[in-house]
């Protein structure tokens, strides 16, 4: 399996330029809001989540990861008509978890990226489901089939998307 244990000294920490750090999440949120109007099936993807995972894994800093997740999640919340914070909490957890994992594991290859995204997509949905039902009182239906299918689709998209976003990485 491509996931290998590495010491913290071996993994590379990347940073991003300020325009990239601002525009990439904005574009992800924009595409998430716009593309489903034209392509209905696109709503199974969660581009902001993929961006959170990518930034968290690349920066390998839990604090930066959770803050990035919170910011992107709150931005995503703002476009819905539901209370602000549901996506924020879920993506905060994912950002923290992905960056913590990135510190310990090498997630630079396609296979590890696929598995990491698969895992964190499910984790994100579980947290979202718990918060939405427990705190907000939304009526949601959990379907493992649907969630696994969405997780697979997002993981596949992540492999391609992360390869594209690698171009914006800058070595520290």
């Amino acid at each position: 399996m491509p996931i290998t244990y590495t010491s913290q000294e071996q993994v590379e920490v990347y940073r991003f330029s300020i325009p990239a750090a601002i525009l990439i999440p904005l574009i992800a949120v924009f595409l998430q809001a716009f593309v489903p109007l034209k392509l209905g099936f696109f709503s199974i993807f969660d581009l902001p989540l993929l961006v959170v995972i990518f930034f968290a894994v690349a920066r390998r800093s839990p604090v930066t990861g959770l803050l990035t997740g919170a910011a992107i999640g709150l931005l995503q919340d703002s476009l819905t008509h539901q209370p602000i914070g549901v996506y924020g909490i879920a993506k905060t957890v994912v950002g923290y978890g992905a960056s913590s994992l990135g510190v310990k594991l090498d997630v630079e290859n396609a296979g590890s990226r696929f598995l990491v995204t698969l895992f964190f997509y499910i984790a994100h949905e579980i947290v979202y489901f718990a918060v939405a039902r427990g705190l907000v009182g939304l009526t949601l239906q959990w379907s493992w089939l649907h969630e696994l299918g969405s997780a697979l689709a997002n993981a596949l998209l992540a492999v391609a998307l992360f390869a594209l976003l690698d171009r914006f990485k800058q070595r520290t």
Binding site: P36, L37, Q76, L79, T80, H81, Q82, Y87, L140
Partner: peptide, 14 residues
């Protein structure tokens, strides 16, 4: 119609 909420749980458009 210029956009949507981007969430399956929030069915709204702009």
């Amino acid at each position: 119609v210029i956009g949507s909420s981007g969430s399956e749980q929030s069915r709204s458009v702009y």
